[in-house]
Design a protein around this nucleic acid. Structure first.
Length: 412
DNA sequence: CGCTAGTAGATCCAGGTGAT
DNA sequence: ATCACCTGGATCTACTAGCG
């Protein structure tokens, strides 16, 4: 059963996709169900006789496996890339090695190329010679496929460069009523998605949960440090974390490793999750750590607080198996550095403790997207805890600007 | 003239992935 | 196990603008 936005987007794509307009960009907020839309569109294009093969590209194996499950379920066909299958799913990394065979495939058949989390590929100004490896591979494949479908919740790049294959317009051509909710990249060009589904709409439609974002601060921070030149000890008081961070030599990253703020954020998360689990016993929490060592330390802290924890990092070869197990288990917490961020679908997660040192809007929204996906009628809220760092605060404010009044709160 | 603040670029590092 | 490549953060340096 499709949601209304998926039906609308599907109809628009089916009208638009043609030899004159072979590219379609769907920008939908994380958790809205982009992959299901992609699968249903694929099915419709096959039925219409426009395509007979689908190539899916994603950034990580976890994302690719997730997408393959959805595609196989909807199409009721195998996507292992072998004889008789209807398509193949690959990571961008793997694409470079399969490029030649895929190009040949495209020449003999009609291929739909789905490229997920599109912001990973770049081609600044559409310049082939400046594209990154993933952008290059996409451009090389483009000429051999019939249609392309780009999917992203955040279709811009932190470095401000452009995405390949897509339409950009000069800033002066931009309609005056255009949405200003996206961060403006410093370039003069703006991307025009073919369909946009915002977080605001998703919450109003009951597709996504209401996020409550709580930024932890402390109004009396005492720091004792040794003066680098005089060697004297000095004690200073700060009224807030932003004020403390203005002091040279005090870094956000150091705060993340400091006992008091770390424990405070975790305690808030633990308390919130226990409350949620009284009514929703399978509700889970996500901790995004700054490094593997940091993740191990956090795991220890959670275990000390009698929580069940699953730690997944790239150092652990069983990480992907553990991720799969966590999906349907009732373990309370999952702790990771970067493996449970982009596109990983664990809908029972409803609480997040953000303790990563990454401070980009991309990452912030991606992580929030992990807890926002709604499963039932009774799980309409999710909770995000982080430190009151100026950049994070700005991202949170910008998010709430984008939301219906009173639906999202920023507390400090 | 010197000081300060801000910015751009280069370099290094860490985490993650896949090919060999 | 090693390598190459993706991302993003931290740090250093060089340059510029503004100011007294």
């Amino acid at each position: 059963m499709l949601r209304q936005w998926q039906t609308e987007c599907l109809e628009r794509a089916l009208i638009q996709l043609s030899s004159k307009m072979p590219h379609f960009l769907c920008q939908a907020t994380p958790g809205a169900g982009k992959m299901l839309l992609a699968a249903v569109l694929t099915e419709a294009l096959i039925k219409r006789g426009d395509i007979d093969y689908v190539v899916y590209l994603g950034p990580t194996r976890a994302v690719v496996n997730d997408a393959r499950r959805t595609l196989e379920k909807v199409l009721n066909r195998s996507l292992d890339g072998r004889l008789g299958s209807i398509g193949v799913t690959l990571t961008y990394h793997a694409l470079s090695n399969r490029l030649v065979s895929l190009q040949q495939l495209g020449q003999n058949g009609h291929v739909l190329l789905i490229w997920d989390e599109s912001h990973h590929a770049s081609a600044p100004g559409g310049q082939v010679h400046q594209a990154n490896q993933w952008g290059l591979a996409l451009i090389a494949l483009e000429r051999h496929v019939r249609f392309t479908l780009a999917l992203s919740g955040t279709p811009w790049r932190t470095d401000g460069s452009c995405l390949p294959l897509l339409r950009y317009v000069e800033a002066t051509d931009l309609p005056s009523n255009s949405s200003d909710s996206l961060p403006r990249v410093p370039t003069q060009k703006h991307l025009i998605p073919d369909y946009v589904y915002t977080l605001k709409e998703a919450i109003q439609d009951g597709v996504c949960r209401y996020p409550t974002i709580e930024l932890v601060d402390n109004h009396s921070i005492g720091i004792t440090r040794t003066h680098p030149r005089t060697g004297r000890k000095e004690a200073r008081q700060y009224a807030s974390i932003p004020q403390l961070l203005k002091h040279p030599g005090v870094h956000y990253a150091a705060l993340l490793h400091d006992d008091a703020p770390l424990q405070h954020v975790l305690t808030l998360g633990i308390n919130r999750l226990s409350t949620l689990r009284q009514h929703d016993p399978k509700a889970g929490g996500l901790v995004v750590a700054a490094s593997i060592q940091h993740a191990e330390e956090i795991t220890q802290r959670l275990e000390d607080a009698h929580q069940t924890v699953c730690l997944v990092t790239s150092h652990d070869p069983t990480a992907h198996t553990q991720l799969e197990t966590f999906r349907d288990a009732d373990t309370a917490w999952i702790v990771s550095v970067g493996m449970v961020t982009e596109g990983v679908n664990l809908p029972r997660l409803r609480v997040c403790c953000y303790l990563s040192h990454v401070r980009t809007e991309q990452f912030f929204r991606q992580v929030l997207g992990r807890i926002i996906r709604r499963q039932t009628r009774h799980d309409g809220h999710c909770y995000f805890y982080a430190l009151n760092e100026p950049l994070l605060r700005r991202f949170a404010r910008r998010l709430t600007d984008d939301l219906p009044d009173e639906l999202a709160k920023v507390e400090m």
